[in-house]
Design a protein around this nucleic acid. Structure first.
Lengths: 340, 340
DNA sequence: CTGAAAGCGCTTACAG
DNA sequence: CTGAAAGCGCTTACAG
């Protein structure tokens, strides 16, 4: 393993010059730069990152706590991780994975990782209503950015990126409306979830806007399970005025709706239009395919990394980068809402 | 941020003694140790990992390349990552995530990560038939361990951990046999997959052993998709002697079988018993639940980490730890094979 | 544009 | 059992 010193000796310059060739090439005369680069190539030199980190006290590593499954979002977690990695690598950084107890119990782990200089900062996800982690990290001055807002807080403790769930539901309603449906139901979760309330509000808002009924059309499911989605759908279909469109809060719930339709001999996309959320692998794997709202994972990842690395959180200086970004989901249309 | 030096000054000992208190406490007199520990506590000292790594040239980081989805195994990837993280942390290590082009194209990325001392070694997964990465890493002397065997090689280029697919299929056959079924089919993939051949062989072997027919009962699907599983199932059910049990190579294929049964008014678990592979989130989310072969992710992760850290691959010395481990899957029985 | 020197925070023979 | 000193491989003011 060649060192900076050896490269310097080989190129007959000082170590400082080699270091500059790597980190500030514009400071060198072109001929010197070329000579140094030849030596680097020849000796197959790779800078030792630990030495660099020790000196600069930046490790270029971003911590991400792997959620313990089962978990609502785990179906798209692999997509998220892949994009997060790719986005980090574009800035020369990498993702360090770790496990921690949920909630505030896990904070000592975050603190330790940061204090021992294993990471520069954190990307949080699985944000919950009143998530205590954000405030804790902010107080401790540990850089972080959150995928997901801390719900029901007037002011967010730190920078975040999120997807506009209300807009997503509205898009789903609009789509079902445009395919001729006028009675559109909503499959929701318990009231305690900020995410659920956001998506529910989008459905209600657009329905009102279009002059569609909402009364008795929002059903709360006990948990995010296929059986619950099926049960809620059965309830809706058994009512006096059954809906002809169903916007579900999640792909899982939507799958329940599809199953119940099938059980009754109704054809999804023809008799009743169904949409889900997240465009998980499930959506494209069922038949007919499930129309679903895709989260723009690549954009999300890029924004997270940009905010974490370019704002005060990591550099100590405030730049012009906004620290709150609400991104729009995209409706992926499949057979469950539009046959053919 | 306190340093070793400051702790030493506070405890009125040399830095060497503080270092020993941390890394070799048995070398200190109990009273000295206690005094040093008090200072560490008081100053909230955390050793700087970069300084340590620079000195010891071990970063305690293990690289794992996030597979680009879509991918056969991505449904259980989050479980795998969680267990891998947890296992690494038990040894004081962490997982560094990165992306790389598939196959041998990605090897420079592995090499770079190792040369720049961002990682000590790698855990590979998504092993393919004749996977070139193993030989490459072995030749380059980069420590690694593989989750999955390199199929069709007489000798494996490096240490591995894998799950016994043949035994898994045999367990599924045995289970269906014990629930009274005598005609058991197998849903497979194209011949090019070592994993598929392994699982197929297990089915055939156990059927022969039990005196069950196999002729015309193995169907190859074009790809791992629900539609393909349904199509293959339809083919089987339309034959002169339709099977009453179906062992599928994957949960996805099994889901296809369930769908086709439903379409025909047949009840899974009653009329036809169905089993899948991997016990993915899908298996417990459908109704009836899908009987499936669970990979022991916790064991797999522990073995991977143990082999990587305890054998020559990382320490340079051969220890007594075996470098090849074939683990047994576990049959998780649900309604698709046994009602009630 | 280039170079000699200090230092980031640890660990580890070595000597006492 | 304890301590003084060298060194891991970089970066960065500083001087020329």
């Amino acid at each position: 393993m060649a060192t900076l010193k050896q490269v310097a000796a080989h190129a007959e310059v000082s170590v400082q010059t080699v270091s500059n060739a790597l980190n500030a090439p514009h400071r060198l005369r072109p001929d010197t730069l070329e000579r140094v680069n030849r030596s680097i190539e020849l000796l197959n030199y790779r800078p030792n990152r630990n030495a660099r980190s020790l000196r600069t006290s930046a490790v270029e590593l971003i911590g991400y706590c792997v959620p313990s499954w089962p978990d609502q979002a785990h179906l798209v977690m692999d997509q998220f991780l892949h994009e997060l990695c790719a986005a980090a690598e574009k800035t020369g950084r990498h993702i360090l994975l770790f496990t921690a107890p949920p909630g505030v119990e896990g904070m000592p782990t975050y603190d330790d990782l940061h204090a021992r200089r294993l990471v520069d900062g954190f990307v949080l996800s699985q944000t919950e209503t009143h998530d205590p982690r954000h405030g804790w990290l902010k107080d401790t001055q540990i850089p972080f950015v959150s995928f997901g807002r801390v719900w029901k807080e007037t002011t967010q403790p730190g920078p975040w990126v999120d997807v506009d769930g209300a807009a997503g539901s509205a898009m789903a309603v609009q789509h079902l409306y445009e395919t001729g449906r006028r009675r559109i139901a909503f499959l929701s979760w318990p009231r305690s979830s900020g995410l659920a309330e956001d998506r529910l509000a989008g459905w209600r808002g657009r329905c009102k806007q279009l002059g569609l009924p909402t009364g008795g059309l929002a059903v709360r499911c006990g948990e995010d399970a296929i059986d619950e989605g099926a049960r809620a759908t059965a309830e809706l279909l058994d009512s006096d005025q059954p809906p002809v469109g169903i916007v579900a809060l999640s792909d899982i719930l939507a799958l329940g709706a599809l199953r119940e339709l099938g059980r009754r001999g109704l054809t999804p996309g023809v008799d009743v239009g169904v949409t889900g959320f997240d465009d998980s692998p499930l959506a494209s794997v069922v038949s007919p395919g499930l129309t679903s709202l895709r989260q723009p994972m690549d954009e999300i990842a890029c924004e997270l990394i940009a905010i974490l690395t370019e704002t005060q959180s990591l550099t100590g200086t405030t730049s012009g980068v906004p620290t709150e970004r609400l991104l729009q989901p995209e409706l992926v249309i499949r057979g469950s809402s539009a046959p053919g």
